[in-house]
Deep mutational scan, measured.
Amino acid sequence: MEVRTIKVFTTVDNINLHTQVVDMSMTYGQQFGPTYLDGADVTKIKPHNSHEGKTFYVLPNDDTLRVEAFEYYHTTDPSFLGRYMSALNHTKKWKYPQVNGLTSIKWADNNCYLATALLTLQQIELKFNPPALQDAYYRARAGEAANFCALILAYCNKTVGELGDVRETMSYLFQHANLDSCKRVLNVVCKTCGQQQTTLKGVEAVMYMGTLSYEQFKKGVQIPCTCGKQATKYLVQQESPFVMMSAPPAQYELKHGTFTCASEYTGNYQCGHYKHITSKETLYCIDGALLTKSSEYKGPITDVFYKENSYTTTIK
Rank of each mutant, 00 (worst) to 15 (best):
E2Y: 11
E2D: 15
V3Y: 15
V3R: 13
R4I: 09
I6Q: 12
K7E: 08
K7V: 08
K7Y: 15
V8D: 05
V8F: 05
F9V: 09
T11K: 05
T11I: 06
T11S: 15
D13Y: 04
D13T: 13
N14S: 10
N14Q: 15
N16D: 06
N16Y: 09
L17G: 07
H18R: 12
T19V: 15
T19S: 15
Q20R: 12
Q20K: 11
Q20M: 15
V21E: 14
V22H: 05
D23F: 15
D23T: 15
M24G: 14
S25D: 05
M26C: 15
M26V: 11
Y28L: 12
Q30L: 14
Q30I: 14
Q31V: 10
F32I: 10
F32G: 07
G33K: 05
P34H: 12
P34W: 14
Y36M: 06
L37P: 04
L37D: 14
D38N: 12
A40I: 10
A40E: 09
T43M: 12
K44T: 12
K44M: 15
K44V: 14
I45E: 12
K46G: 10
P47C: 08
H48A: 15
N49G: 08
N49I: 15
S50E: 14
S50W: 11
E52M: 12
E52F: 12
G53I: 07
K54G: 10
T55V: 14
F56L: 10
V58Y: 06
V58D: 04
L59E: 13
L59N: 15
L59A: 11
P60I: 08
D62P: 08
D62L: 11
D62K: 14
L65G: 08
E68A: 08
E68C: 09
F70I: 09
E71A: 08
E71L: 10
Y72C: 07
Y72G: 09
Y73C: 04
H74S: 07
T75Y: 06
T75F: 05
T75D: 07
T76D: 14
P78N: 10
P78V: 15
S79M: 12
S79Q: 14
S79G: 14
R83L: 10
R83G: 06
R83M: 07
Y84P: 01
M85W: 13
M85E: 05
A87P: 00
L88R: 05
T91E: 02
K92E: 08
K92Y: 12
K92Q: 08
K92H: 07
K93C: 09
K93W: 08
K93F: 11
K95M: 15
V99R: 07
V99L: 12
N100K: 14
N100G: 07
N100R: 08
G101V: 03
G101F: 03
L102F: 11
T103L: 06
K106L: 14
W107Y: 07
W107N: 06
A108E: 15
A108R: 15
D109F: 04
N110H: 02
N110E: 03
N110S: 03
N111E: 04
N111F: 00
C112V: 03
A115M: 07
L118H: 03
L118N: 01
L119E: 02
T120A: 07
T120D: 03
L121Y: 03
L121A: 08
Q122D: 04
E125C: 07
L126T: 04
K127Q: 11
K127V: 09
K127A: 12
F128K: 03
N129E: 15
N129Y: 09
N129T: 09
P130A: 10
P131G: 06
A132G: 11
A132W: 02
A132L: 05
Q134I: 09
R139C: 11
R139A: 13
R139L: 11
A142N: 13
A142E: 14
G143C: 05
E144H: 10
E144M: 09
E144S: 13
E144Y: 14
A145W: 06
N147K: 10
F148S: 02
C149N: 05
C149S: 07
L151G: 03
L151K: 03
I152Q: 03
I152P: 00
L153D: 03
L153I: 09
A154C: 08
A154F: 02
Y155Q: 01
Y155C: 04
N157P: 02
N157C: 10
N157F: 10
K158I: 04
T159Y: 14
V160P: 08
G161V: 01
L163K: 09
L163M: 09
L163Y: 12
L163G: 08
D165S: 15
D165H: 03
R167M: 04
R167A: 06
R167Q: 03
T169S: 06
M170H: 03
M170A: 01
M170T: 02
M170S: 02
M170G: 02
S171Y: 13
S171N: 15
Y172N: 11
Y172E: 11
Y172W: 13
L173C: 06
L173D: 00
F174V: 04
Q175M: 12
H176I: 06
N178R: 09
N178T: 07
N178Q: 15
N178A: 14
L179Q: 01
D180W: 08
D180P: 02
D180F: 12
S181F: 15
K183C: 09
R184L: 01
R184W: 02
R184S: 11
V185F: 03
L186P: 01
N187S: 13
V189Y: 09
C190A: 00
C190T: 02
K191N: 13
T192W: 11
C193G: 02
Q195A: 14
Q196E: 14
Q196T: 14
Q197D: 07
T199K: 08
T199N: 07
L200A: 10
K201Y: 10
V203L: 10
V203T: 12
E204V: 07
E204S: 09
A205Y: 01
A205E: 04
A205L: 01
V206G: 01
V206C: 10
M207V: 08
M207P: 03
M207I: 07
M207A: 08
Y208F: 08
Y208W: 07
Y208L: 06
G210R: 00
T211I: 14
T211H: 07
L212P: 02
L212E: 04
S213T: 04
Y214S: 01
Q216C: 12
Q216S: 09
Q216P: 03
Q216T: 09
F217T: 05
K219A: 11
K219C: 10
K219H: 10
G220L: 01
V221I: 10
V221R: 05
Q222L: 10
Q222F: 14
I223N: 07
C225E: 00
C225V: 00
C225K: 00
C225D: 00
T226L: 09
T226G: 12
C227W: 02
G228I: 01
G228N: 04
K229F: 12
K229R: 09
K233M: 13
Y234P: 00
Y234L: 08
L235I: 09
L235E: 00
L235K: 00
V236H: 07
Q237C: 10
Q238S: 01
S240E: 02
S240D: 00
M244C: 06
M244T: 01
M244Q: 01
S246V: 03
A247M: 07
A247E: 02
P248I: 11
A250M: 15
Y252T: 15
E253H: 10
K255I: 13
K255T: 10
H256S: 08
G257I: 00
T258R: 10
T260V: 11
S263I: 06
T266Q: 07
G267H: 06
N268T: 14
Y269N: 11
Y269F: 14
Q270M: 08
Q270P: 02
Q270G: 08
C271N: 13
G272N: 00
Y274R: 00
Y274D: 00
Y274F: 06
K275H: 00
H276F: 08
H276P: 04
H276I: 02
I277A: 02
I277M: 04
T278F: 10
T278M: 15
T278I: 07
T278N: 06
S279W: 03
E281R: 03
T282S: 14
I286L: 05
I286R: 00
I286G: 01
I286N: 00
I286Y: 07
I286T: 00
D287V: 00
D287A: 00
D287W: 02
G288R: 00
G288C: 00
G288D: 00
G288K: 00
A289C: 07
A289R: 04
L290Y: 14
L291F: 11
L291H: 11
L291K: 06
K293Q: 06
S294L: 12
E296V: 11
Y297E: 00
K298T: 09
K298N: 08
G299A: 06
G299P: 00
G299D: 02
P300N: 13
P300A: 10
I301H: 00
I301K: 00
T302L: 00
D303H: 01
D303P: 00
D303A: 00
V304E: 00
V304L: 01
F305R: 00
F305L: 09
N309H: 05
N309V: 11
T313G: 14
I315S: 14
I315P: 11
I315W: 06
K316Q: 11
